[in-house]
Design a protein around this nucleic acid. Sequence first.
RNA 1: AGGUGAGUAGCUCAGUGGGAGAGCGACGCCCUUACAAGGCGUAGGUCGCAGGUUCGACCCCUGUCUCACCUACCA
Length: 990
Amino acid sequence: MKDYIPKEIEQEVLENWIKSNIYTVKSPKKAFSMVIPPPNVTGSLHIGHALNITIQDIVARFKRMQGFDVVWVPGFDHAGIATQFVVERELSKENKSRLEIGREEFLKRVWQWVYRSRDNIKNQVKRLGASVDWSRERFTMDEGFSRAVRYAFKRLYDEGLIKKDTYIVNWCPKDLTALSDLEVEHEEEKGRLYYIKYPVLNSDEYIVVATTRPETMLGDVAVAVNPNDERYKHLIGKKLKLPLVEWIRYDITGKEISPEIPVIADEFVDMEFGTGAVKITPAHDPNDYEAGLRQNLPIVKIMDEKAKLTKNAGRFEGLDRYEAREKVVQELKNLGLLEKEEEHIHAVGKCYRCKTTIEPMVSTQWFLKVSTKKEEFLDIVKAKKTRFIPQNWEKNYTDWIENIKDWCISRQIWWGHRIPVWECEDCKKESIYTDEDFSYVQDKLIFNLLADGKIKKIFTPKEIDEILNGRNFVHPEMSTLDFYKHFAYKKYYATGINEFSIWQYMASRRDLYKYHKDVKGFELLLKCKHCGSNNIKQVEDVLDTWFSSALWPFGVFSWPEPNQELDACYPNNLLVTAFDILFFWVARMIMMSKMLNDKEPFKDVYIHALIRDEKGQKMSKTKGNVIDPIDVIEKYGADSLRFTLASLSSALRDIKLSEQKFEASKFFANKIWNAAKFVISNTPENFLQDIIYGDMYEKEDYWITTALNLTIGQVTEYLENYQFSHAAQSIYNFFWNEFCDWYIEFSKLRIYEKPIEIKEDMPDEEKAKIEEINQKIQKRKLTAVGVLNTVLSKALRLLHPFMPFITSYIHAKTIFGDSDISLKEFPVFEKEAVDIKSYETIERLKRVISFIRKIKSDFKIESKITIFFQTNTSKEFLEEFSPHIVNLCKLSALEELKDSANMLSIPFEDITFYIPEKDFDRTSLLKDYEKTLKDVEKQLSIYTSKLQNKNFVEKAPPEEVEKAKATQEKLQQEKENVERLINILKSDKI
RNA sequence: AGGUGAGUAGCUCAGUGGGAGAGCGACGCCCUUACAAGGCGUAGGUCGCAGGUUCGACCCCUGUCUCACCUACCA
């Protein structure tokens, strides 16, 4: 073995895994299932993904080694608005807009983008070492998912849970789409509060209203005051003249609305704020909208979808909302109707994608009525059908569900699942289509292609042939037809489909397919399910991306088709995700799973932290503080990246990350490498045959076996409880501080012990004696090698989930390397391997060695010396381990004291050591020991007073009192020892 | 405004009703045949502040300050 170069070994190991396909599971029996949170196809993975994938892979590898059929499904999310946004930005580089090139051409561009981005991310996931089953890869826009989305939509619609409705929504005037409440980010902003006078009709009085958005006054339909507000009570029911407006406005039903508006009473008005009078603009403010509904007020829209003012704004028509604001304010000023303006800080809603200020707008959208199902969604978590880890998140979930509003699921964008609703131009009613409406496979396939936008309204058999028999987007190794069979229908239809067979089929089904002679194409005839009219058109809107992501835990297992894998893998055993998508995604999955299947989507959700930069700030490309996981892998290796993330990942707090932190893990990997090098290079070739001739275990062998087993127990428990950082810490300590620092050093006594040379001229008897000794040496060596190998192998297996590459590479080179380490058994805690007596003996030995090392360091003893000892109770112990002490302390010998002349005596526990007198810095040493004495005395006084306290002795548990007594005695001895030493140092004797 | 989490060594963080820990950094000594990406040793903390409960509090309770995040409102 050469030096540790992560890049080289990781490459090699990765190739082996991919070649041998070991993470593919055909038919899971004892299943452990997870679905990857599908990364967006918007670019590349960031360090947060790396953390997410690392945690999942740790669990996956752990469970796999424990004998589970681990089904870990990878995949990607089409990310509607985000991806559309990115592709539009690309287009703008060519000075084009999506509106110019049209929907069809634009979507082609998106698919090209997705292809590149997907492959890039896929490669990154592989380099992280994720042991996903690539044969199960899915995409939220693949043929199976698109079909599942239609099924889901239809079921929810049929149950009355999906409704088209006119309602006030969050509208992004740049992306030109509605957004859900969650997609709006609130930011504090400095604004102004304008106080405007509204004259009371037929009176000299006026009401002053305060507003941050004066331009919306053009859409005012009332002014509201609190019914208990004495200032305004007399005005309730009177009319006001809306300033500036001298024209007729129309509400959304087309009714004329006068600029004379009523003063109304409504409880929602806060008397304390502003003037206590509120202008009501139902079309452009969510609160006003609600008030409008309560008070039966008309809705006057004054802005269009780009937030430009409309005809209702009279002479302000065509102005942008901000231009209009300035102009309105100016005109009010001129008329003397602006009482004052004030600085005002308030939160402004922004589009989460493009940061444009949201315009609340009344619009017709599709809603999923989740608010009616609150109790059911709460129950999943309350009844622990789904467990949140850490549990704290339950409260967040519960609070959010309790206040949930209906979910606006339609988006006015192009990239996404088009709503499967066909509206009838004749009877105006809605028909939902899925492939359930067709009985023959051919029709089902053609319908799906049509609904997915893969073919146009009029299509040719050749196009169908090319698509179905062409390479599939997600699984290029199979045709799209096979993809349908394998992933969507989960059945094998014998039907082969080609251009000719389709032609023949469609020609025979003139009831369903209309032939267009002019273009030699067919049209699938869809009819209105209510009046039978052919005059129906599919809704242009697409669904919120999270609508499809919410189906992920069962959609990847070919839902809605009943099948064995769905049964075996759903509910998923575990979902690992970050808290920032708790509502977006986790809650939505719970909702969909409950509504569609009456089940929880997963048993456990492990919610991990977000990664921030070293200053605790969110990483973002614009700030330039991102850490690219691939850069880290290049510099430090994927193993180091993973180990670092795992050791930093406490579930509760954010992770502050800087590049430097990967270094420690790389040093650790290097340590592993070198320790393994030592073990492997000292293992004889035919070791496995010879090991039966090995000798008995030494105490240190029992010691390391015990320490190993204690570690195994800890790591297993930590992993089972998702305590990754503790598990990582535990292995780290064992490997470095026990195995490397002590056991390997101890083992060198036997490993490097040289056989005695036999000389020709020796008498036979002596030769035989030496021969016997040499055999013994050989036997002892074999045992040490055996223990080294066993411990190394088990330690590597403990480490494997964290550092899969290096452990796989090294393990293959050990005597146990017949198959990949990821398929080996995870070490099991063995009670009978724990030998507390030997363990404590060696722990004592470690203390003695450390003490002698400290003495050597304190007294600046550099050369090899002989140290003498004197003891009543530990003679055997010191003699038994004298080789260990001599070697690890680099002494020339350790012997019992014969003559104390010119010796400096140093007490330790029940032993006194003697070193030769020599020059050293007495003052500084005295200072050190006096400080030690002070510390010991302080400790001792704590215990003494504790034991003198009657209350403690009487009330504390007896074992605590015993413990305190023991500690007191220990401290007493230590105190005496230090005092003795100080006296010796002070005496003129030396 | 409500909620959640955090405040422990210079930095990053563990920890728990009974002797304050680790990693990194700092300092001193060592190129010793697995490893200088290493070894050996050392220094450094009234555990945010104030009360309370307890025989005993870094830990539990109350209050308070600071920081971060989430949710809602803000005419």
